[in-house]
């Protein structure tokens, strides 16, 4: 039987899905055991117990100097930054994306400008942001917004343009105004596609967040990783990376769940 026709039963499918994870974990444990047998004070691949100690120290014990629990302080400040940035990027890209996608005058005005702006490497202008906006929260949030908003604008403008002309004509024959079409026809159909766009841009958003935190910050997940790097504290870095991955995964998962729940028509409309 051809490989393209060989279907996998649910049980083996679950097993196969888990296999890469298991392999990575086994490889890590084996490597760690070998290195630690050689040199018990090796820092590169700490044992699980060492990491558990570090997690306990970071996430469940108040810091001696500040009395705060660093893990949660870092998580809250990182999530706040990325949340505010995503909110700004969402609003900007919806407004500009619909305007550019729907209104010929806005398309003529903005489309080449956006095409050029989205090619500016955001990290290259990070120093400019720090100089102009200072080292506070504004410059970090701005970096994320500048990093993802142009891409989201272009995405949503394209999604708006690819809506069938027939729908827009039909709405006009029902007597709709431009604003009526925007808010009853275009916007509701764009929202689930906006969620797709946010999901795809979540990776870049985290990238820019951690880059900004690494350079100038007093708290945050990226800040902590780059801080403890000086002491080769892999026992802290690895759990932090896993935690960031989990957070990103949960955000992605809840966005998908939100899409299914709020837009039940979308799966069928996308299929047709």
């Amino acid at each position: 039987m051809r490989a393209i026709n060989r279907q996998i039963k649910p049980g083996p499918r679950l097993l196969l899905g888990a296999l890469p994870f298991l392999l990575v974990i086994i490889a890590y444990l084996a490597g760690s055991a070998i290195r630690l047998a050689d040199n018990p004070s090796d820092k590169l691949l700490p044992a699980l117990t060492t990491m558990a100690d570090a997690i306990d120290r970071m996430a469940f014990t108040p810091d001696k100097r500040t009395g705060e629990i660093l893990w949660w302080v870092d998580t809250v400040s990182s999530l706040a930054r990325i949340g505010v940035a995503l909110a700004f990027a969402t609003v900007i890209s919806l407004v500009v994306g619909i305007a550019v996608g729907l209104l010929p005058i806005m398309r003529a005005l903005m489309s080449s400008f956006i095409a050029v702006i989205s090619m500016v490497p955001p990290l290259a202008i990070l120093p400019i942001l720090f100089i102009m906006l200072g080292l506070g929260e504004t410059s970090k949030v701005t970096l994320i917004v500048i990093g993802i908003a142009p891409v989201m604008i272009r995405d949503l403008a394209l999604r708006t343009e690819e809506m069938p002309t027939q729908q827009l004509i039909k709405a006009q024959t029902l007597g709709a105004s431009t604003f009526g079409i925007v808010q009853r026809v275009v916007l509701p159909q764009l929202l689930p596609r906006l969620i797709d766009s946010i999901r795809l841009n979540m990776g870049p958003a985290w990238l820019f967040l951690i880059a900004a935190e690494a350079i100038a910050s007093e708290s945050g997940l990226g800040y902590r990783i780059f801080l403890v790097r000086r002491y080769l504290a892999m026992d802290v870095i690895l759990p932090y990376v896993a935690w960031i991955t989990l957070l990103a995964f949960l955000m992605d998962y809840s966005l998908r769940a939100l899409q299914d729940r709020m837009f039940p028509w979308f799966a069928g409309a996308r299929a047709s």
Binding site: P164, Q167, K170, A171, T173, P188, Q189, W265, A269
Partner: peptide, 12 residues
């Protein structure tokens, strides 16, 4: 008023 062959109704 108009009815097209496709995309005549609003999917949402």
């Amino acid at each position: 008023g108009v009815v097209f062959q496709r995309y005549s109704v609003f999917p949402h």
